[in-house]
Design a protein around this nucleic acid. Structure first.
Lengths: 199, 199
DNA sequence: CCTCCACTAGATAGATCGTTCTACTGTAGA
DNA sequence: TCTACAGTAGAACGATCTATCTAGTGGAGG
């Protein structure tokens, strides 16, 4: 039973996802992606003729939705919504510490970097964030009848998590993510408890 | 009465601050800093012998505190604390839109970029964020007697604002910052009103 | 067997990066 | 006036960047 190595294209994508997430767009070189994926340099341009930009856009548009699915699955693993929120932030904090504060949001670093300099990539990050808000609003909508309130809570959750990632990575300390979880629970408590009695 | 041009060192610092804020560390070249500051290239190394890293660290350590002072002054311009919070986020959203979504947090882009690759710069960003938390806690402490609560609110404000900047810059839309303001007011309402009746 | 082509492999090009270097200019103080 | 030096100015260097190019490999289908 031998673990079959993923094909070259997959290895390139995975290495690109890791490197873009950790070091951003300008900070990640194609040479390094080739090296870390153990792929021939030329294969990058074989699979991604559009070069670095196409590879980055592909990474954004695949890592982004993957991350949302992971978070939604995590949220669904605990029945009570407030406990689930607390648990999600706790897991996020633990994961961050476990990866040496490298693997936080898969697209935030690139998003900030390219926002003022690369329109195609900026749009890609914006669309991913928009999907997150929609997906998050759907989850909160299960507990909060008011659609606008659900959407607002989704917004808040994404923003406070993104901000916590910035502080946690800078400080190499999971505490900001824990603090973000407490604030998020506080924000969601009243709307969810109101929804419970009203529903 | 002629407007005297700032000296070379100042122009280099100002151009560096703008470019690092907008394009991050790797995305900003020294050649471009020299060009935008109308400074001789060699002068960068004259004033900052440590090169790009020293210039970036200097930028982080000066732009960071400057930004906090600006925010604190803004918060002090409105007497009622909840109205002041709402106003601060409104002004932040307007400023962001007015600068074509370029000038958000002066250090967040660099912070995410260097967190996993440059220890000196990571520490610099971490120390700036820590000063912000302390400064913010002092402001909230004027309205909320509980020190831990004040510190928690400062944490929340910084995180939700940072997250809102990520989303607003990506979407080229001030709405996330406005939404962040509403959430922040919601988070601060109970503690501040409790403090009001208790004090 | 042979052809075709996806893929591997890496050399190469041209631009740009951060850094270092030399030379020059202007001014303040002896 | 002469000296010393802060600052100006940009050429040059080696490294690295993205991107292109040529050549070779290996397996599937006729």
């Amino acid at each position: 039973m031998v673990a079959t190595r993923p094909d070259t294209r997959t290895r390139i994508q995975e290495a690109a996802a890791v490197l873009f997430r950790r070091h951003g767009y300008s900070g990640t070189g194609l040479k390094r992606i080739a090296a870390e994926s153990a792929a021939p340099f030329g294969s990058i341009y074989h699979f991604f003729p559009g070069g670095k930009e196409q590879l980055a856009e592909h990474t954004i548009r695949t890592s982004g939705p993957q991350y949302m699915q992971m978070v939604l699955a995590l949220l669904d693993s605990v029945p009570d919504p407030l406990e689930s929120l607390a648990n999600a932030f706790r897991v996020a904090a633990e994961d961050l510490a476990a990866t040496d504060y490298a693997d936080a949001c898969p697209i935030a670093t690139v998003a900030l970097e390219v926002a003022s300099s690369n329109e195609a990539l900026r749009v890609a990050t914006a669309e991913v964030f928009d999907e997150w808000v929609t997906g998050g609003a759907a989850w909160f909508g299960r507990w909060v009848p008011d659609r606008e309130m659900a959407r607002s809570l989704a917004y808040s959750m994404i923003m406070i998590l993104e901000g916590a990632f910035v502080l946690s990575r800078a400080a190499r300390d999971p505490e900001p993510v824990h603090a973000a979880g407490r604030s998020m629970v506080e924000l969601a408590r009243a709307p969810i408890e109101t929804g419970r009695t009203a529903g």
